[in-house]
Design a protein around this nucleic acid. Sequence first.
RNA 1: GCCGCCUUAGCUCAGUCGGCAGAGCGUCUCACUCGUAAUGAGAAGGUCUAGGGUUCGAUUCCCUAAGGCGGCUCCA
Length: 680
Amino acid sequence: MSSALPSSTAEPQLRPKLTVAAGTTARAALEAAGTDLNGPSGVVVVRDSADQLRDLDVPFEATDEVEPVAIDSPDGLSVLRHSAAHVMAQAVQDLFPDTLLGIGPPIENGFYYDFLPKRPFTPEDLGAIEKKMTEIIKASQRFSRRRISDDEARAELEAEKFKLELIGLKGQPGNTTPTELNAEEASQVGGGVLTMYDNLNRDGELVWTDLCRGPHLPTTRRIPAFKLMRTAAAYWRGDQKNEQLQRIYGTAWPTKDALKAYLVQLEEAAKRDHRKLGAELDLFSFPEELGSGLAVFHPKGGVLRKEMEDYSRRRHEESGYEFVNTPHISKQTLFETSGHLPYYADGMFPPMEFEGSNYYLKAMNCPMHNLIFRSRGRSYRELPLRLFEFGSVYRYEKSGVVHGLTRVRGMTQDDSHIYCSKAQMAGELKNLLDFVIDLLRDYGLDDFYLELSTRDDSPKFIGEPAEWAEATEALRQAALDSGLDLVPDPGGAAYYGPKISVQARDAIGRTWQMSTIQVDFQQPKRFGLEYTGADGERHQPVMIHRALFGSVERFIGVLTEHYAGAFPAWLAPVQVIAIPVSDDQVDYLYDVAKALKERRIRVEVDSGSDRMQKKIRTAQQAKVPFMLIAGSQDAENGAVSFRYRDGEQRNGVPVEQAVQEIADFVASRKNSSPSVADFG
RNA sequence: GCCGCCUUAGCUCAGUCGGCAGAGCGUCUCACUCGUAAUGAGAAGGUCUAGGGUUCGAUUCCCUAAGGCGGCUCCA
């Protein structure tokens, strides 16, 4: 999953190309054309005919056609953020002179820089660094590019051991895609020629310098708005065997308003946090006594969960799945047979020794489903055989990775294993993908893209290359047929086969990995799964693993954030709250509630001693879709008043009609909040 | 697992420069009986996460553990 927020960047404007004559600068050409270089959409770099971004103030060796790049375009934002990273590094080395530099690339919505300081940074340090950065920005330092040979760079950066390492790893001249470096590292040294960026103050004095491919803003003054967000630790070059550096994250924007909008967006996202809403709405908790990553669902969360599962069961039933059940623990031999143990023992809870055997909590359901397949002879007439289970699995997630409901140690997968013939595989995958997308849509997610995870040369992948190729092709075809965007993920496959994962964007644009569909030739082999074909011969089935929600827990977390806790009426733990204007209407409302309960509506009467206004407020905060309010007039007329989540109301609705409307709305499984417009 | 920060009432948080702890919300009780987002008054509620150390004395300082948060690595 990625919970990164979308950048709120406007679409880049297409600007007319300009000619930069040999020996002159892009700035000269832009100024001659009267281009804005300072505003919120001002041009900060140009793109040359070789598709390289170039500084405004570095003279061109040859005449070229360039495309102006504005600060608020995706490339412009990267330049802004990378430049902000340099300013931060200068501020840090200024305040903490013995600090060594790692790398400082732009990232989505901001930038970071890794440091090796004498001591870790504190929150107070961040304030001081921000202040120093503001001084540097106000000083309007120029970013000045300077070519340098490898040897010169080594001499100049003698004290910076990490930079020296990058120089050693960079590609040779002409090799623009150094294989040893990832994209973020390459942004420091590029492929061929090394360059330094010198920060020069107004008097042209050198105040700071960094090894960098560039390009940069013309001056630090062009950083209109930034904020340091947090400190964190990060391993050098992303490898946990390496030294751990201190990373500082920041964000930078073309205007103060854009920064503010981004911060507001973060606040909105924080309000949706399922861990916070889960407690506020009394859905679930993580009792310390149970241990990390183990959730309990309270009655309200239990209802939500039951509704989700019930609907899923119904759809699976309609789609030809058969329901099975398997235990939570198994003898070690099962996971030896499946081949999981050598790969995933670290991810499983340690075994319990009992009656001379080691028992493991299951971390996956597939081996047990295989046993069901194998329990008797199978005919081709039974295929595809689709076994489904809400199966609870336990995984020993490392302590630092447990996170709310999205990364837990005990979870329930909506797990299914489909056994089919090779000939059926392509069609089954296509149907499966349609089924997955269709079901996710019913829960209100409707913006998807797919990721196709394939093998690379790593030895961790097992099985015949021909089988991999066939399965990968079948998955790719199913993905293409779906019409959704397909993102390749080379090397991301499971060791036993390729997979498609469905990524869903939620209401505020964050993406979550939801469903996975994996093809597996290994386990049928290992378990000796067979069926008798029409030809009377024995054949090995193809096995497809799939989970739609991923896990029920995780899906509840995602939906909670997607709906910000205001669940669709059909899922809402409490669908109706009945509120009397005074105590005199309590009995009347219990009668209304009885009528609703007969229609299987989840209704509560708030008979407490609060005033009506307070009860409305409470129900509103509980994000209940329907409030039914009754005073003496309503009671006399056999009517109720509706109040919806949006605060709109409809008065004097006859009880029978109100019950029908609510029952119909819930049955419709509409995912939008009910409002006056739904009942015109 | 690694780095940093955090843990005080059911929740959100004050506070004690080391001398037996406080607010708001919530809960309970009483009064009020009210027409679309907080009626008023009162009460209960805490081994200050746990264990060890320093000290005449520890919620406060130190160590360890557990749990949480932010990242990194990982995510079958």
